[in-house]
Design a protein around this nucleic acid. Structure first.
Length: 550
RNA sequence: GCUCCCGUAGCUCAGUUGGAUAGAGCGCAACCCUCCGAAGGUUGAAGUCGCAUGUUCGAAUCAUGUCGGGAGCGCCA
């Protein structure tokens, strides 16, 4: 019996007992949790306190009655007691958690897979940076967050599509084309200024050189605007893909804004909005009544000059996603876009008639610290710390771990000097070391011709506190996945990984795995195998490798 | 001025559908390798959970106010 089923069974038994005592009230939710401090038992419930009002009795008194009425004879519970203001604590039998070991070994990397998101198609859109330069550190955070979340939700059973929206229809692309054109002309020593608000990054010069290499001087006289545009988008996008690839982030769909115009999605969406009666004309512009759906005011969707605002194709884009059959849309946006959420959600509700189909996760800013001072970043000036720099100087694993360790919605500092230092100050080495250590133990065992036994189901030698700590964590893996997926919080997996590594290192220092006692050795090796399976799987979820040697 | 996010140990951060003595890493102090990898372990010092009031058996968590940091308030994207 695993921990989740045990909790569920226990809950059923408690409800039965409450009914016997005629206290039962279905509006009170029964929660069974694992106490932070294990001296408070392996499982605990606060029902007695919750029922204090209903039963009109002291919580401890209710707890006593409840334990009397509770039948746990069929469960692997050693004893039960009452503590503090009225908590009921359950202490499991020593052997209760042993069977998690064969379960894990049998299921392998599918251990912890859930059917939480069964039949739910989810689209996660993230990064979606305009191809006007390299990815900087903030984008890296978005990439790590989106990719990790996608992996976790996939493990939880959702049908996940990772999508990147390429804004190749807007003003910034116009500026990009003009910037490349200027750099191109400069390559021929022609005096050309980069436009106001243009892009000054190194990659623009590289792109201009590539353009020159391919087309020579053809477009010095001839108008090459459209070509500068498409060549620029294509070249810069390829560059982004290279970096993302190195960061172990991939996308299932690259969606181009241009498609929305080509397919007349924008037109038909505008028509739909008009047909539904949520638009009106004022000052020569067309407005959408988003204020009727929780936005602070109405928004223009067609400007008085006839062109669209940024919002309009974006509504069409989300509409397009819904038409592709997604049940849930998740956008991961930078903190500077939070003012945009209300109007987008309002528009999506008008289009789809559904309220909660779009879930926007906001990623707060990353403050970069170097030499003890904040580094201000600006993409346009080209003075940004790029993902590429980070990959070159720090490496993929520490960066992904670092981002995955923070909750999305918190501002964070990144001390570059620290990150680059590659010392034990970076906890990623701590968890990777756990994996390397297990490998090393298996190497030693191999010399003695010993290995784990996948069929083993009794573990008589594994009965100390350190072992139980590890087993409890292994048993808690599925619920960690569930909590992480439900709350869209990849960092919960990272916290779990760290706990598991700590429990393992502690065990390693207190117990000797390989001894003359062959039976005991094999039991330990089998436990280590299970730890390793879970450790590697959890690390994979956040995009971090588990090296065999370091 | 209005809206959103954040404020927890010296530093970086967990913990918030209200629960037991508020946790981790780094840094600091002291111990542990004749023994499977010391990139490790054990122990310790370190906190008015920004502040105030309220809600109740119980508040870091909820409400109101307030102070500090960040972001957003376009017919920009």
């Amino acid at each position: 019996m695993n921990l989740l089923t045990l909790q569920n069974t226990l809950e059923t038994h408690i409800i039965e007992a409450l009914k016997v005592l005629s206290y039962y009230d279905d509006s009170i939710n029964i929660t069974i949790e694992t106490p932070k401090d294990k001296s408070n038992g392996d499982l605990s419930t606060n029902v007695a306190m919750q029922y204090a009002r209903v039963a009109r009795k002291a919580p401890r008194k209710i707890a006593e009655e409840l334990i009397e009425a509770l039948d746990v004879s069929g469960l692997p519970i050693d004893h039960t007691d009452i503590a503090g203001p009225g908590f009921i604590n359950f202490y499991l039998k020593d052997t209760a958690l042993h069977n998690v070991i064969p379960t894990i070994i049998q299921k392998g990397e599918t251990y912890g897979n859930l059917s939480l998101g069964k039949d739910t198609k989810v689209n996660i859109e993230f990064v979606s940076v305009n191809p006007t330069g390299a990815l900087h550190i903030g984008h890296a955070r978005g990439a790590a967050a989106g990719d990790s979340l996608a992996r976790i939700m996939t493990k939880a059973g959702y049908d996940v599509t990772k999508e990147y929206y390429v804004n190749d229809g807007g003003n910034q692309i116009h500026t990009l084309a003009k910037s490349i054109e200027a750099r191109y002309k400069q390559l021929f020593d022609i005096d050309a200024d980069i436009p106001e608000d243009g892009y000054h990054g190194e990659d623009i010069i590289t792109t201009a050189k590539a353009f020159k290499h391919k087309y020579g001087d053809t477009y010095l006289e001839k108008d090459g605007y459209e070509l500068f545009k498409s060549f620029g988008v294509e070249t810069l996008l390829d560059g982004l893909k290279v970096d993302l690839n190195r960061f172990d982030v991939s996308f299932d769909v690259w969606f181009h804004e241009k498609e929305l115009y080509k397919n007349h999605d924008v037109e038909s969406t505008v028509k739909l909005l008009k047909d539904k009666g949520y638009t009106y004309e004022e000052d020569g512009a067309v407005w959408l009544k988003t204020s009727e759906f929780n936005d602070e005011k109405d928004r223009v969707i067609i400007k008085s000059d006839g062109s669209y605002t940024y919002l309009t194709p974006d509504i069409a884009y989300h509409h397009n996603k819904i038409k592709r059959g997604f049940d849930q849309l998740i956008d991961i946006l930078g903190g500077d876009h939070h003012g945009y959420i209300d109007r987008l959600q309002a528009a999506i509700e008008i289009v789809s008639g559904k309220k909660d189909i779009l879930d926007v996760e906001i990623l707060q800013m990353v403050k970069v610290i170097q030499d003890g001072e904040e580094v201000k970043m600006s993409k346009r000036s080209g003075k940004a710390i790029t993902l590429r720099d980070l990959l070159d100087e720090v490496g993929k694993d520490p960066i992904r771990y670092f981002f995955a360790a923070r909750s999305l919605n918190t501002q964070m500092d990144l001390d570059l000097d620290l990150a680059i230092r590659k010392t034990t100050e970076n906890p990623v080495y701590y968890v990777q070391y756990a994996s390397a250590r297990i490998h090393s133990v298996f190497d030693q065992a191999d010399k003695l011709d010993l290995s784990y036994d996948p069929k083993l189901d009794t573990f008589d030698a594994l009965n100390n506190e350190k072992v139980n700590d590890v087993l409890a964590l292994l048993a808690a893996y599925p619920e960690t996945i569930e909590a992480s997926a439900k709350s869209r919080s990849p960092h919960k997996v990272t916290t779990y990984i760290h706990k598991l590594a700590t429990a393992f290192h502690s065990l390693y220092n207190s117990d000797k795995f390989i001894t003359d006692d062959t039976k005991k050795t094999i039991e330990y090796l089998t436990l280590l195998k299970a730890i390793h399976i879970v450790l590697v799987d959890a690390l994979t979820l956040i995009g971090v490798s588990a090296p065999e040697k370091m």
